[in-house]
Design a binder for these strands. Structure first.
Lengths: 204, 204
DNA sequence: ATGTATCGCTACATTTGATGTAGTAATACA
DNA sequence: TGTATTACTACATCAAATGTAGCGATACAT
């Protein structure tokens, strides 16, 4: 996969990403058209959509949430661990390894800033979280087939992802430095880590 | 506000909603264009966008999350209550009063079904949750100005909303009847209700 | 009641994101 | 050296969404 063709393909992709980020920084998200990004990257508009499914995606390129790490963490559960512990460990794994470079380069903050102002971006960001959430939920149910029902698993993972993502965005919007952002993530996670999980609906 | 003009306006709005729901049920979300909805409602395409900001919104008409109830619940906190208790009460208030008619009419299920297949709908639904989440977070910080920092408040509300929405969607997708859906909501909420909230980042 | 202002709606034009199609030139490969 | 693949292009097309100007019904003040 390291042929000349692939090399050039990655170059145009990178050119599109950099052109887009530059223009977004300069003018904001909605004030930049795909045609302008393509022009700045010296490719046709059509080429943009060969590399990215939608305009939003160019900003999230190279920002893959490492869901695979979370999934592995779930799969590697030890016998003593409860569901909440495993979820906490999975989240910790993902927190520790995601956005490594983005946080320090400030790209994560640009994303948060733009997402706060452009609904389309916010929507795409949320969808990514939900997709990750869904995968984790499935993995968790596989790990605890007898102890967890679909509702409980969804609630547990939803709480974890909801807490961490909300705390992360709050920290980013506040302008916290990378270390603080990560601390916010861990704090949010610890909030959920101690949660009790009942299998049956609580009577009231 | 009950003049003849307003009456007719609400009629065309309702006609658009019903036309849209009918077509969506029949063919799915993406297979229906706004032009077709407008035609079925016997109005111009332009009129559709005078009533709804976007195509997605016609499906969520009359499905307002009663955030105001949650906000009031937060504002009416008693002295003994901690943040987690107040959030739980606010969520309970919203759960008890939202989708009253929708859940029984099956509209909520149609929404969930369509949202599961149409990314645009899923995105809009998520945005609504986040908007509600944001309002609740602000209210919570006002209620506990000394005990809660932005991160903690965001994490707590994020966990609550994340858990409840995930559990709700899971129940809806599973085909649970309205009573079960509500039970799932409450169960998810109880998961978060007992959470401990530390003001400082946890050292590790 | 009559004149005036408001407002919901329409038709038309335009922008923008996104997809389909066919062709070209460079790369890969036998 | 010949063939297949494929990244890219130009062009056409569709659908969502917005701007604008005008029409007619409703609302309202005198």
């Amino acid at each position: 996969m390291t042929g000349l063709r692939e090399l050039k393909k990655q170059r145009t992709r990178q050119a599109l990403v950099e052109a887009a980020i530059g223009l977004f920084e300069e003018r904001g998200y909605e004030q930049v058209t795909v045609a302008e990004i393509a022009e700045a990257a010296e490719v046709s508009t059509r080429t943009f959509f060969l590399h990215f499914q939608a305009k939003e995606d160019v900003l999230f390129a190279n920002a893959d949430v490492r869901v695979d790490l979370g999934l592995r963490a779930v799969a590697e559960r030890t016998d003593g661990e409860g569901p909440a512990d495993v979820v906490a460990r999975a989240m910790a794994e993902m927190i520790g390894n995601t956005w490594e470079s983005d946080l320090s380069s400030g790209l994560a903050r640009l994303r948060a800033l733009l997402a706060a102002t452009a609904p389309a971006l916010q929507a795409r960001l949320l969808q990514r979280y939900v997709a990750a959430q869904h995968e984790l939920t499935l993995a968790l149910r596989q790990a605890y087939p007898d102890e967890l029902d679909p509702i409980g698993a969804a609630a547990l993972v939803g709480a974890a992802v909801g807490a961490v993502s909300a705390a992360t965005l709050a920290a980013l919007e506040r302008g916290d430095p990378p270390a603080e952002v990560r601390a916010a993530m861990r704090r949010a996670m610890d909030l959920v880590a101690g949660a009790q999980l009942g299998r049956e609906p609580v009577t009231r």
